[in-house]
Design a protein around this nucleic acid. Structure first.
Length: 539
DNA sequence: GCTTTTATAAACACGG
DNA sequence: TCCGTGTTTATAAAAG
């Protein structure tokens, strides 16, 4: 077993910090959601995350003006408006930050906004006091149970819940200290708070409008409301369809729900009418409801995990929802999302807990599953590092792992086409859809532009696609992979296996061929790789 | 009914 | 000894 040179691999432990820098430097690229991982972000990316949250949640064209003197709700807000909103918010950054950003040419142009963005502190002092003064004065956002437990609405799972912060705090005392230090009453916090207020306001408005729309639709179609479902029953939104409980009654805004009962994990809505089947409603095998949902639907139906996570990032972060992906898919995504496309086991753990509230419990179970998957699947390659071992993804093996199931199934393809827009709906909207007649609602075409990634599904690809959609995530600033996974092919594979000639001669475009040739030296494996990579990699 | 895939659990080895 | 990491085996379930 050879050990790779340290210079090539000794960079994994700083991946999170890299993410922060990426976020900071890509404000113009639509923001991101991956940077503030482990509390080293000093809150600088919080507004970005807020902005992205808004971008996700107001994509149905609801606009709230957050200028200095008003909060008028308008119609038809586009991402550009949100960018402007962000500019206004960021206009209260310190002069040092502004100078830094201007100097690097990557930040916002504050010169045109700095004079018009001084938020009236007096109007927000009272609310901000409640935010930064700790647990005595905080605004109650959680249930009384947590309140009585001495928790803080901005503190949970050992991390700061300030939008975009996620700083890790061991205990409440440390959190309070962090809160007072990093989120004190200043312009930035004021702006963040104000943005958050707008987010809530927008969502309330959006909910009202969508509820009205739904009511009108159902009235028009003479449909009955969804049948209720016992709340503590394991819920799989992907498959329960009209049998879902109307959770909107419990969480009216469709926002990331507070953690459900440990016995009632839910899986968010997945794409495609064909996915819905009563047979999969009770797919949980574990008596406690946290057992496996066999065949993660996103895998089965080729949903791009990257786009799904990109769109529902906040939802998964906050809701105790089991992600509808296999462990292998999640691990792969975590690794490919890393700047170096390699992660240590612990970093993979961190990614899971950071991205999914669901994985903040039952740690022994899922961590064991992660390790098991890493060892079991040949697509995960352990690479020795001077500091230990990192895990990479052998994309070829991953693609081999599952033959395409889309080809030769015209009905399924047709259904996938008709359901293209589904995956692009934001989490809140998906939740709303799940509670009603999702098929009908989705036919309304309420999709956001990022749903273009879903077009991948049309090309007969048989996998949940990460490598093709990682770039999409990149555009959001959440990660910055620049290497093809195959570029790690030259690294020493601890787990060796016999090379197989892929019988499946899937089509591959010239671009992919070029990419692969660039990534790997020519040998037999390369030819195999060229033959094996499906077209999904090219979209 | 068989095979494959996946999830879960558990045992074990190894090294720090 | 404990813990983290990594491997392996067994079992069950779902789906093709």
């Amino acid at each position: 077993m050879m050990v790779e040179s340290a210079s090539e691999t000794i960079r994994t432990t700083t991946s999170n910090q890299n993410g922060v820098s990426n976020l900071s430097s890509q404000l113009d690229g639509g923001g991101g959601r991956e940077g503030g991982s482990n509390g080293d972000n000093n809150g600088e990316i919080s507004p970005v995350d807020l902005l992205h949250l808004q971008q996700q949640q107001v994509c149905v064209c609801v606009c709230v003006c957050v200028c200095t003197s008003c909060s008028v709700v308008c119609a038809s807000m586009c991402p550009g408006d949100l960018q402007q909103l962000w500019k206004e918010v960021s206009g209260v950054q310190s002069a040092e930050e502004a100078l830094k950003q201007q100097h690097t040419g990557e930040g916002l142009d504050l010169s045109t906004n700095s004079t018009s963005t001084s938020f009236p502190k007096a109007n927000t002092h009272s609310s901000l006091h409640s935010l930064h003064n700790g647990q005595d004065n905080h605004t109650p956002k959680r249930d009384s149970h947590e309140e009585h437990a001495g928790s803080h609405p901005l503190y949970g799972h050992g991390e700061c819940k300030w939008p975009g912060c996620e700083a890790l705090c061991d205990d409440m005392g440390q959190f309070i200290k962090h809160l007072n230090n990093e989120h004190a009453l200043d312009d930035r916090s004021t702006a963040q708070c104000r943005v958050q207020m707008q987010v809530v306001q927008q969502l309330e408005i959006q909910l009202a409008k969508e509820s009205e729309r739904l009511q009108a639709m159902m009235t028009h179609l003479h449909m009955r409301p969804s049948e209720p479902k016992p709340f503590n029953q394991p819920l799989n939104l992907a498959s329960s369809g009209s049998l879902l409980k109307r959770e909107s009654e419990v969480y009216p805004e469709g926002l990331p729900h507070p953690p459900t009962s440990a016995t009632a994990p839910i899986t968010p809505l997945r794409q495609g009418p064909s996915v819905i089947s009563s047979s999969s409603l009770h797919s949980h095998s574990h008596p406690h409801g946290v057992g496996p949902i066999r065949r993660r639907i996103a895998d089965k139906f080729c949903t791009p995990i990257a786009s799904e996570l990109a769109q529902n990032c906040e939802f998964y972060k906050n809701a105790d929802v089991r992600p509808p992906f296999t462990y292998a898919s999640l691990i792969r995504h975590a690794i490919l999302e890393a700047p170096d496309r390699q992660l240590t086991l612990n970093e993979i753990y961190n990614w899971f807990t950071r991205m999914f509230a669901y994985f903040r419990r039952n740690t022994a179970t899922w961590k064991n599953a992660v390790r098991h998957n890493l060892s079991l699947h040949k697509c995960f390659v352990r690479v020795e590092n001077v500091k230990g071992a990192v895990w990479t993804v052998d994309e070829v093996e991953y693609q081999k792992r599952r033959p395409p199931k889309m080809t030769g199934s015209p009905t399924l393809v047709k259904n996938m086409i008709s359901g293209l827009g589904f995956g692009s709906l934001n989490a809140s909207y998906q939740a709303a859809l799940a509670e009603s007649s999702l098929t009908l609602l989705n036919s309304q075409g309420l999709v956001n532009p990022s749903s273009a990634a879903s077009l991948n599904m049309l090309h007969g690809m048989g996998h949940d696609d990460v490598s093709s959609t990682v770039e999409q995530v990149n555009s959001n600033g959440s990660c910055s992979p620049t290497l093809s996974p195959q570029q790690y092919g030259h690294q020493v594979h601890v787990k060796e296996e016999p090379t197989e000639i892929e019988e499946d001669s899937r089509s591959m475009s010239l671009m992919a061929t070029v990419t692969q040739n660039m990534a790997l030296p020519s040998d037999r494996d390369d030819r195999d790789l060229d033959d094996e990579l499906p077209t999904e990699e090219l979209e």
